[in-house]
Design a protein around this nucleic acid. Structure first.
Lengths: 251, 251
DNA sequence: CGAATAGTGTCTCTCAGACATTATATG
DNA sequence: CATATAATGTCTGAGAGACACTATTCG
């Protein structure tokens, strides 16, 4: 017993004297990929910010920032997301940590990227009107690479317009979204309301992220099969032209 | 053109004056989960190291260490792996970055965990004989949690014997291994020789990682179906009792 | 020959995926 | 009634999964 106390005591002693700064340390940032889907037009959109500082002045980058002391990187991502977009309470998922030498010309900087899945209705980015110069861009496939455009502000970006290694991050993120689409429920996070949605709405999200069109009857069958126990029918509703739609609640 | 030069120049100026250390920085480590599979006995094994220092003196932890300046975390993991086990040229895959507040009593330390998939034959850990006190432990499921044992040295560990948040890391790693088993080719990395193996060998690896027994004929059919184009038959060989076995080469 | 091991064949059931049909709204 | 939209039904082929049978070697 006294031995236990002594061990505990000496651990306290140890920690008191321990100096982490004897090792060199990198700077650490969190970057956020704010994805959203517009169901009507079936567009996948991503939030980019034009840099106002060196390095990569005027290039476009992912929102993000340095970690604050004793803050988890998830908290960093969440904080930066609120600061840069005002968006709160969305689903964040860690993507990957990028630490290649030379990825940041300022020095030894590693970053952990987080994917934010945001319903379009929650986002209120007024492109190109504020100091920050944020833009919600359409993610387009062209010549085997990703391009980003926003026709409202006449913006067209390709790989060379993207700062740091952020193009690679974006590429990995889209791959991750597509990969997880069919065996997780990530698509549901893009719904304006998980407690009240329709199959055509959900299908539009699947179509958009996957980049191809699911067959209608097959889609409904599959979803009901996969999530049947977590779905509740809320009743049919008239919605304009066409047959009334069944509304569902998830989870 | 001169404008371009000027911009470049001012970026250089900027970088020269830029001081990353104005932000506080965390310490960063890489931890490695060295997994291996013993096909004969169908055991999943993990390399743990008993700590000889505070904090968590005498508890067991994953091998790992602090990142060195301008080294990628993958390189850190690879370096530590060689230093601690002598193992080279194995497949490493990033698992996750852990950064919760309080995960390390020494202070602000984040870690990126890497999974190493090592053929049993490549590992040569002589348990409990060296200063480092490394042990290759069997990963066992007991009462809905993971336990770790090595009967040669009379070792039995449970969650409370694991240092830091490493139990959580191990838990996530096993889940990752199992999750990726059926839709990636990770199992092949545990083969002693990808260029010459048999289906019973491969099946033992799948059985071990998944924790259940695949049906024989179903297994072979499925694998051939999935990787048919990447498999080459090398011919049958006698191997003791029983029908001669077909040998395959992957990729 | 019997036990051990590996390979092959068969049968059922489910589900992916394509396609056709029906139902209900608007104008 | 034509059109738009959503839901439902049908058919086929591939594959999951269980089971039985055959083939080859050793003692």
């Amino acid at each position: 017993m006294s031995e236990l106390y002594e061990t505990t005591g000496s651990e306290k002693e140890f920690l008191k004297k321990y100096d982490l700064t004897k090792y060199e340390r990198p700077s650490v940032t969190a970057d956020i990929l704010v994805f959203t889907v517009v169901p009507k037009s079936k567009e996948l959109k991503l939030l980019l910010i034009q840099r106002g500082n060196h390095p990569f002045l005027n290039k476009w980058a992912l929102p993000g920032g340095f970690a604050a002391p004793d803050e988890s990187l998830l908290d960093t991502a969440r904080r930066e997301l609120v600061e840069e977009t005002g968006v709160e309470g969305v689903y964040l998922e860690q993507l990957y940590t990028f630490s290649d030498k030379g990825r940041d010309p300022r020095g030894w900087v590693i970053t952990t990227a987080y994917i934010a899945m945001v319903p379009f209705e929650k986002l209120n980015i007024k492109s190109g009107d504020d100091a920050k110069n944020a833009a919600l861009v359409d993610v387009i496939r062209k010549n085997d690479s990703w391009c980003f455009k926003n026709e409202d502000i006449g913006l067209f970006l390709q790989e060379s317009d993207i700062a740091f290694d952020h193009y690679r991050i974006i590429d990995m993120a889209i791959e991750r979204l597509r990969g997880k689409l069919d065996y997780t429920d990530i698509a549901f996070w893009f719904l304006p309301n998980q407690k009240n949605f329709t199959m055509p709405q959900l299908k539009a999200i699947y179509d958009t992220i996957s980049g191809n069109e699911y067959e209608r009857s097959y889609f409904v069958k599959t979803i009901k099969n996969r999530y049947g126990s977590r779905l509740k029918e809320l009743g049919k509703q008239v919605h304009g032209v066409g047959k009334p739609v069944m509304h569902y609640s998830y989870k």
